[in-house]
Write a protein that binds this DNA or RNA. Structure first.
Length: 200
DNA sequence: ACGGAGATCTTCT
DNA sequence: GAAGATCTCCGTT
């Protein structure tokens, strides 16, 4: 059943969206079939004041999707080889987004296994670059509206995780030169003890 | 299980 | 010209 989150859900504060996306279902209608899973790890990047965010220095050709309406996707290539998937949050021009870092595969397991050929199941989607490989998400999805299934890539309610099942910590992979307090802000959320999170 | 290095190339300074 | 919101492989423990 298709019931995407609407614009108002993503218009909330990025930290709220990051928390509430834990348990949400990420789905992609591919040519081979429907693939997706439950989100178990996210990170918030919050506005032009966040010196760890791509939006920090204003508009550039790459980060332009961050100025789209909430609910749009922002995908970009990192280290020359991996696509990462973000969702734009907060009211227009807030320049905030949530990075989807890990999911628990639930739909189209055969297709996912094919996309992750040779890898053991625990390593199918336990990282931001791995899950895009598993689901076939890439530059084609940059700037698409994730509030409608017409885009073939969308988010919808799935499971509910109570607060006592959630943990927070500093974001991963930030360069050492990212200044405080942003380097240490606990803007990463994950499901405690879940085997598909990238790091405990 | 853990740690280090290479891959690979776009983006912004 | 350097760094990057990462992953995989290969070494050692």
């Amino acid at each position: 059943m298709v019931k995407p989150y609407g614009r108002d859900f993503f218009a909330q504060n990025a930290k709220t969206v990051a928390r509430d996306l834990l348990g949400a279902t990420l789905l992609h209608q591919t040519e081979k079939g429907l693939v997706g899973g439950i989100i178990v790890e996210t990170e918030a990047y919050t506005g032009i004041d966040d010196l760890a965010s791509h939006g920090r220095a204003g508009k550039t050709p790459r980060n332009l999707p961050m100025w789209e309406a909430p609910g749009h996707a922002y995908t970009y290539l990192i280290y020359g080889q991996y696509w990462l998937l973000n969702v734009v949050c907060e009211p227009p021009d807030a320049v905030a987004a949530v990075l989807i870092r890990a999911i628990e595969p639930t739909q189209g397991l055969d297709i996912i296994a094919q996309n992750r050929a040779g890898k053991p199941r625990p390593q199918w989607t336990n990282g931001p670059g791995k899950l895009t490989l598993a689901l076939g998400v890439d530059e084609a999805h940059n700037r698409v509206d994730m509030t409608t299934a017409i885009s073939r890539l969308w988010l919808q309610p799935g499971r509910i995780y109570p607060d006592n099942a959630i943990k927070t910590g500093p974001r991963i992979g930030l360069g050492k030169h990212v200044p405080e307090p942003w380097f240490s802000m606990r803007w990463r959320w994950w499901v405690a003890g879940h085997s598909d999170v990238s790091r405990a």
